[in-house]
Amino acid sequence: MSALAVAGAIEAGLLFSLVALGVYLSFRVLNFPDLTVDGSFPLGAAATAVAIIHGVNPFLATVIGTFAGCCAGFVSAFLNVRFRILNLLAGILTMVALYSINLRVMGRPNISLYGENTIFTAFEGVIDLGIWTTSAILLVFAIAMKLLVDWFLGTQVGLALRASGENPAMARAQSVSNGRMTIIGMSVSNALVGLAGSLFAQSQGVADVSLGIGTIVTGLAALIIGETLLGSTKVFWATLGCLIGALLYRLFIAAALSAGFLGIQAQDLNLVTAVVVAIAVILSQARRNSRFKFWPKMRSLLMDTQPQKG
């Protein structure tokens, strides 16, 4: 695999680590199976691209794309909390609606950003690492968002959000509004996804209405791989797992597509993705089961070795 292919895989991995962080908030913290990300990812890209071609500062355009994703998450949560629509269905409805909204926002299926000033061109005068420049910039974004999520989940609102996702009845007994926490958590989750879409459009030079296809699968794959490797539920390690999992996932995909002897071609990407996710889930379940079996065996062993009284 060439250095250019590795650099491209790392760029994609760092971008989708932001998606994995968003998926972590919705799936793991809130216990909300959210499919909105397949729509909020291209929404962030579309909003940012339209803003940039209309002369908006790239940094402000990135904020606009992030806010657009936040609004998408708010809609899904509002449908679930206010109208009691099943969380999975609420996400699907928002995702479907966002396809048309993204077309409305862009006015056409795709927008090219080639020749436009982006957030990456602004950093080129500060960081010049050749083909690794974009990766370095994205690494800064990924680490910053990871630390921001860590901080957020340690605040009173973050602790209430975690309690609401872990045990809604107990959280309600402690005067925590589960509905409000769902809205806040989903908004923050999809804001991260919108930011990922915004950075993706600027790094790749194009925003396309079909960018979101398979985004949720990629985010889940990164999350599960990270959990399998680190095996910790603590926030710091869980969010770090999102970054590591996304990088490993994209590197594995790039390696599989570059391995000519395997006969894998570009059209097999979805098949490779499905296989990787299935293997990650199987390994995660095997590790969890072995952990649960280990302690009962140790306890029985210790009890058998205790000296007999009398």
Rank of each mutant, 00 (worst) to 15 (best):
M1E: 05
M1D: 09
S2Y: 07
A3T: 14
L4M: 12
V6Y: 12
V6P: 06
I10Y: 02
A12K: 05
G13H: 07
G13A: 04
L15M: 07
S17A: 11
S17R: 01
L18W: 12
G22T: 05
V23S: 07
L30G: 04
L35D: 06
G39N: 10
S40Y: 03
P42R: 00
P42F: 01
G44Q: 03
A45K: 00
A45V: 05
A45T: 09
A46K: 00
A49E: 02
A49T: 08
A51V: 14
I53C: 09
V56W: 11
N57Y: 08
P58T: 02
L60V: 15
A61L: 05
G65P: 02
F67E: 04
F67G: 03
A68L: 02
A72P: 03
G73C: 00
V75W: 07
V75D: 05
A77M: 04
L79W: 02
L79V: 01
R84D: 15
I85S: 03
N87Y: 09
L88W: 08
L89W: 02
I92H: 01
L93N: 05
T94A: 06
T94L: 01
M95H: 08
M95W: 00
M95L: 14
A97I: 09
Y99G: 02
Y99T: 02
L103Q: 00
R104P: 00
M106P: 00
R108G: 15
Y114W: 14
N117L: 07
T121K: 04
G125A: 11
V126P: 12
V126N: 07
I127E: 00
S135G: 08
S135V: 10
A136C: 11
I137T: 15
L138V: 02
V140A: 15
A142R: 06
I143K: 08
A144V: 12
L148K: 01
W151K: 08
L153N: 13
G154D: 15
G154P: 05
Q156F: 08
V157D: 05
G158N: 06
R162F: 01
G165M: 11
G165N: 07
P168F: 07
P168Q: 10
A169E: 13
A171K: 13
Q174C: 13
R180T: 14
I184P: 10
I184E: 10
V188S: 00
V188I: 05
S189L: 09
N190E: 06
A191I: 09
G194E: 06
S198A: 13
S198T: 01
F200P: 00
D208F: 05
D208V: 10
S210M: 11
S210G: 08
V217E: 00
E227L: 08
T228E: 01
L229D: 08
S232W: 10
T233E: 04
W237A: 13
W237P: 01
L240K: 06
L243V: 11
L243F: 06
I244W: 13
I244T: 14
I244V: 15
I244A: 12
L247H: 00
R250F: 15
R250D: 10
I253G: 06
A254Y: 06
A254I: 03
L257P: 10
L257W: 01
L262R: 04
G263D: 05
A266E: 07
Q267V: 03
A274Y: 14
V277T: 01
V277R: 05
L283H: 04
Q285G: 11
A286W: 10
A286I: 07
S290M: 12
F292K: 15
K293A: 14
M298R: 06
M303W: 08
P307A: 07
K309A: 12
K309F: 11
G310N: 12
